[in-house]
């Protein structure tokens, strides 16, 4: 059984979660072109290595971010979105 640590609910079976895709910073709606939006919505970097991803704890409908190493499927850390964003701004 693979365990994912939900920032709100604590450790839970991976079957309680839904994958939401790679995290990308949302483009500025006032300045971005159609191709910027297409890039944001449809394309992923899909790197071999650590990647920040959206995950949802289905039972509580709680969305958060997880850093996962795609080479070995190891979850490196999980965090609330606000925590990650404040990290990026610091």
């Amino acid at each position: 059984m693979k365990i994912l640590n939900c920032p709100l609910n604590g450790p839970r079976n991976i079957s309680e979660f839904t994958y939401g895709g790679e995290y990308h910073a949302m483009p500025d709606a006032a300045k971005s072109s159609r191709s910027d939006w297409a890039e944001y919505i449809f394309f992923h970097r899909n790197p071999a290595g650590p990647v920040i991803e959206w995950w949802c704890h289905t039972a509580s409908a709680y969305w958060f971010l997880a850093e996962r190493d795609t080479r070995n499927n190891e979850i490196l850390r999980t965090m609330p979105v606000a925590e990650y964003l404040s990290e990026q701004q610091a």
């Binding site: 609910n9 839970r12 079976n13 079957s15 309680e16 039972a59 509580s60």
Partner: peptide, 12 residues
């Protein structure tokens, strides 16, 4: 409170 899965059903 635990928001989790009980008998594979989401439950509070």
């Amino acid at each position: 409170i635990a928001q989790t899965s009980l008998a594979r059903v989401n439950v509070i």
